[in-house]
Every structure is written in structure tokens, then in C-alpha cells.
Amino acid sequence: MPEPVIALEGLTREFPADPPVRALSDVFLEVLPKDYLAIVGPSGSGKSTLLNVLGLLDTPTSGSYRIDGIETTTLRDGERTKLRGSRIGFVFQSFHLLAHRSVAENVMLAEVYRSRGARERRNRRARALEALERVGLSHRVDFLPDRLSGGERQRAAIARALMGGPSLLLCDEPTGNLDSRNTGAVLDLFDELRGQGLTIVVITHETEVSDRAQRRVRITDGVLVEE
């Protein structure tokens, strides 16, 4: 059996409040390479909290989280940041493209914080163009984000997430701001990327999205159940 990309064991996340909010409660989850997992659940059930933990943006209160076999809960802030930069690609509901930078520059930004040498830096644009080609955006390379359609923006953000070859693509409501036609295009892209061997975790409340995933888990009040 291959090493799981994600392995959660008894993971709990409690927010200090009065009384404390248990946003994730004793979660067990394994995601294997090339898995396409959808996380569904009602509003306030803990989906975003789970994704933040998976993306190393947040630390669990207790339990274990291994990514590619590396235990992350004991890592220091700096090491988690490095791991995040090198292994995880994020796709956000609101795209998070920098408005004053061209599409290519936005994609290149993904390598700014993990550049390892002058040669790599010189070929950065070429790699960005490659990533844009993968998402079918070669014709919009020098556009500013506000000249793109919603679907195109999300595809540019996906190209940015693909830069540097992450082990895991984490998407929080990636189609939340898109109409059905653009949603279809993004979902087609996910299928394609999964075909190319990428591991994808998608949070969604849209059945259209979760139906396309190969696996589906549901969170209710912080408790995760496989469907």
C-alpha cells in the first residue's frame, strides 16, 4: 500500500471560547495519492477548520497529522511554512489573485518563496507558462486578473497552485463564486489533473461538485463520517 498523502489520527481542534467550540472532534482520515476527495457538510460544521489544518495554516489541539509521512503537529512555525510552500497548493473560493500583476506574474509568485537558485529563477516564467497551458489559459498570460472571467480567474489560481508540483491540491469552495458553465470547466480541469496523478481535496456544499469526486466524507458538528 502506498504512503498516504494525508493521515489524520484522532485529530481535534477546539477554539477557546466560553464554552469551548469543538470544531473538529476525533477525526480519522487517510487520503491516498491520486485520491479525489470531497468534504461536504452544513455551514458551521467544521469544513474550513479541517482544510486549514490540512493546509498547515492552523494547528490541531490534539491528535496527529502526517503529510507524506511527515508528522506535522510537532513542527515549528518555520518548518510548517516550508512544508506548506513545497507540498500544498491552495485554491480559494475568492481566487486571491493580486490585482496589479499579470496572470503570469501571479502564477510565478508561487515560486518566489521557495526559489532555490538563479537558474530556477530564470526559468520561472517558462514554468508558469507551462502551468497556464495545463489549465488552458495560454491565451491570457499577460492579462490583468480583472480582465478575466470568473472561471478564468479560478483556472489562473489553479495554475499558481500547480507551480512547483505539490503533493496535494486543497480547494475551499473553488466553485462558490462561479456560474454553472464555469463550474463545469473547473471540474473538468480537476478530472484532468487527477488523471495526471494529482491528489485533490475539495470542500463544497454543491452536489454537482461532490458527485464528480471519487470519494466523499461528511462533517457534522465536527464529526467526520465516510459516505
Partner: peptide, 16 residues
């Protein structure tokens, strides 16, 4: 703030 969050998600450390 959103840009800062994005940069952090791309692997930017606090010092960056």
C-alpha cells in the same frame, strides 16, 4: 490582509 494570507499560503515565512 488577503494578500498577506495568500503569500503565507504560498510558503512565505513571517520574516518574508
Amino acid at each position: 490582509v488577503a494578500e498577506i494570507g495568500l503569500r503565507r499560503s504560498l510558503g512565505a515565512a513571517r520574516r518574508h
